[in-house]
Design a protein around this nucleic acid. Sequence first.
RNA 1: GGCGGAGUAGCCAAGUGGUAAGGCAAUGGUUUGCAAAACCGUCAUUCGAGGGUUCGAUUCCCUCCUCCGCCUCCA
Length: 467
Amino acid sequence: MRLFDTLSRTERDLRPIDGSTYRFYCCGPTVYGPAHIGNFRTFVLQDVFRRTLETGGFRTLHVRNITDVDDKTIRDSQKAGKSLTEFTAGWTAKFHADCEKLGLLPPHIEPGAVEHIPQQIAMIEKLVEKGNAYASEDGSVYFKISSFPGYGRLSRLDQRELDIGKTQNARSNSDEYEKDSLSDFVLWKSRRPDDGDNFWQSPWGEGRPGWHLECSAMIQEYLGNSFDLHSGGIDLVFPHHENEIAQSECACGGHFAEHWFHITHLLVDGGKMSKSLGNLYTLDDLALKGHTAMEVRYVLIGAHYRKQLNFTLDSLTGAREALAKLAKGARHLAANADPDARLTSADFGPFQAAWDSLANDLNTPCALGGLFTGLRDASALTGVEAAAALAGFNRVLRALGLTLPEEAVHDSSAIPESIQAIAEARWQARLAKNWAESDTLRARLAEEGWLVKDGKESYSLEPLPAA
RNA sequence: GGCGGAGUAGCCAAGUGGUAAGGCAAUGGUUUGCAAAACCGUCAUUCGAGGGUUCGAUUCCCUCCUCCGCCUCCA
C-alpha cells in the first residue's frame, strides 16, 4: 500500500519497521464534550487506513490516546461541578459509543494522559538533563527550541517565520508563563489557582503536564523510540506534531515516526464549521434529523483525505440512497452466487479497481466508484463466479468499514390494527375499481406515516421515512 | 505578511499529456387505474478566467480572479 507522507511530501510504500506488524499512533480526542463530524472525519479515515492495511495482509498495532487533562477539560469539569476523572470518563464513554456507531475498530491500546504522568515526568527530566529543556522560576518547564536544529521541518517553518511568531506572541502577550524564547513551548505547567485539585507532584513542584508531551510519552511507552506512522488532523502538524518530534527525538535519540499521515479538515456548506454558525454537527444532532451514523461515515469517506470535504445535509440523504443501492447490488449478487462455492483465490475480481484505489494513497471516493461499477459488471455473473465477486465486494466493503442496510422486512404483526384495517379497506376499494375511495385511503395511510406498496396479488405496508 | 490547499454538471466528487469514474438529484421508458416501489435508459465537446508550451492540456508553465485552512494547547 502507498500513502502520502507529510514530512517527505511524497507517496511512499508502507513497510513495517519490524517486518511483521505495522505500528501506528493516532492523536485522539480531548474529552470535554461530544466529538463532531469534523473530528470523526479524521478518526474514520484512520480507521479506513487500518482496515486497508489489514485487508492487505498486514498485522497492525493501533494506539490512540485520550486527552483527559488540559485547560478545557479542567475548566469544563469545574463548570459541571464534577471531578476531572468523572467528567472525562463520561465524555470518553460517549466518544466510544459514537465510534461504535460509526463502525470504528477500537484501537489495540488507548492510553489516557492522567494515567501516564510518571512517564511524562521522566521524559521531561531527561530533556532537562540533556539541556533541551529548562525550568522557569514559577516551576514550569519549557522545551528549548534552539536546542533542536530540526525544528520546523515537518511544517516547513524556517527560523525567520519562527521569529515572526515570536513577535506576534510578544505583541499579544498572551502567555502568562515565563520562558526564555517566546517560541519555546511548555512541557510542564506549574500549578495555578484555577487548576483546582488537578495537580501532580513533580521535581519542579506541583503542576500538570503540557499537551504536546503527553503523546510523546505514551508513544515511547507503547511503541518505543521509533515506530511506523503517526496520524492526526491537519491542524496538528504545527505546533503539536512539530513539538512531539522535537521532544521525542531529543529525549529518545534517533528517528521518531517513519511516516506522517494527516487528514484535511472538512467544511460545512462551503465554510468553516463553527458553533456560532450553527453548523457544528455531532452524531446526535444528525440522528435527530433522521440520519444514521453509517450515512455519516459514507459521506466522510466520499472525498479524498487530503482534500477539503464539503459536508452538507443533502449529501447525507444522497448517502442513504447510495448505501441502499450498494445493498441491493450485493443482494442481487448473493442471490446468483453458489452458496457452496469453495473459493481458493483471494483476488478481488470485478472489484480489483476499487481495491487498487484504496491501496493507492487511500483513494476512498474512487474506491466507492469502483464498488458501483464492479456491481454493474458483476450483475450477470452466476454460481462460483458470482460467489467470488461477492467475496471481493465484501473485502473492499470491510476495508471501507461500511455496513449495508438490511433489506427492509416489516413484521406485519407490528403494524397497528387500525392501519391494517385502512389498508385492507383500500385494497378492497381498489379491487372494486373505486379509485377515488382507494386514493383517499392511501392519503390517510400516508398521514398516519405508512407507505403502501401495491403488488399484483397483494400489497405491503412500510413506515414512511422520518421527514 | 508567511506557509499550504482548492476551483470539474443543479449538488457531492474521482481522474489523466491523448480526448471527462462514481453517487445524489433530474429526466425518458417499462410497469401501474393513477402513483409509489422495481427494472432499463438519458444526463459535462467540457474541467474558474486569459495567455503560453505541445501534433494534442482539464492535466505542464505564466498572469489574474475567487474560496478555504494553518501560523493561538481546535481532528
